[in-house]
């Protein structure tokens, strides 16, 4: 090195430049690396987002399965409380008309569902089977004006028939003027119609009106079951309520 005075000079001169250049290169490398990482992260992020969506869908599906199994478990519990002969069924279709309130079940005569059977849910009475094919059944809901369920007021034991109505809430028909009926009273099935088991909740009285004339009072009922939200039901055999002699 002593024989070459230019070399050290160049080295000395270049050193700061090299350091600066190297720093820039390092910076660029870092940026490049970061960009690469960022790109990787972006794709990773995208992949993870996809995974989250998948898991979210899976979670929703599992929640739905859980909710369904809970409902079915509760139905089975209810079924176990009733004598044998009842059938669990799912709702597969609704009414095609505004005028009639009904739905179609996925079980029919092949599964033991017969015309005239009562249809109940966990909450209470739903309706009655009015037509059956081998693999499906039509249920007339309690909200239909053609339906009727014999009920008693849980508190005062007053009797009447709950029927649907197109112009108002379901009404309690044939409730005598002298009967003690108040708003908030709960209505349960009497079991006397030979269709519905005794003691099932039908609804709550929301309005009582006594006119100055007439034999009966006007009573409106809020049904316990909202038919539009039902997915599974229990079809109850008439033998359940009419024990064999």
């Amino acid at each position: 090195m002593q024989r070459d005075p230019i070399g050290p000079l160049l080295l000395g001169l270049m050193r700061p430049l090299q350091i600066g250049a190297q720093a820039t290169v390092a910076k660029l490398k870092e940026i490049q690396h970061r960009y690469g990482t960022f790109r990787g992260l972006a794709s990773e992020n995208e992949r993870l987002r996809g995974r989250i969506t998948e898991l979210e869908a899976e979670r929703n599906r599992l929640l739905e399965v859980e909710a369904t199994s809970l409902r079915l478990r509760d139905l089975l519990e209810l079924r176990s409380q009733l004598p044998a002969g009842s059938v669990t069924a799912a709702v597969i279709g609704n009414s095609a008309s505004t005028w009639f309130h009904s739905f179609v079940l996925d079980k029919g005569s092949a599964d033991g569902v017969l015309k005239g059977m009562a249809v109940v849910s966990l909450v209470g009475v739903v309706g009655q089977v009015v037509a059956v094919t081998s693999r499906s059944a039509k249920v007339l809901l309690m909200t239909d004006p053609h339906s009727g369920v014999d009920v008693i007021v849980q508190r005062s034991r007053a009797r009447g028939i709950v029927s649907g109505s197109l112009d108002s809430a379901p009404i309690l028909k044939y409730a005598k003027r002298s009967e003690d009926i108040q708003e908030g009273d709960r209505l349960i099935t009497s079991g006397l119609d030979g269709i519905f088991p005794k003691g099932l909740l039908v609804g709550t009285i929301t309005k009582v009106r006594k006119k100055t004339f007439g034999l009966f009072q006007y009573v409106e009922v809020a049904l316990a079951v909202d038919p539009s939200r039902i997915e599974e039901v229990l079809v109850v055999s008439p033998e359940i309520i009419q024990p064999k002699k």
Binding site: G93, S95, A96, S97, W99, F100, H101, S102, V104, V130, A131, K138, L140, D144, H146
Partner: peptide, 13 residues
Amino acid sequence: SVDVFSSPVLGLN
């Protein structure tokens, strides 16, 4: 078909 799916009385619709 409306009767079949909805109405308690066949023939109405």
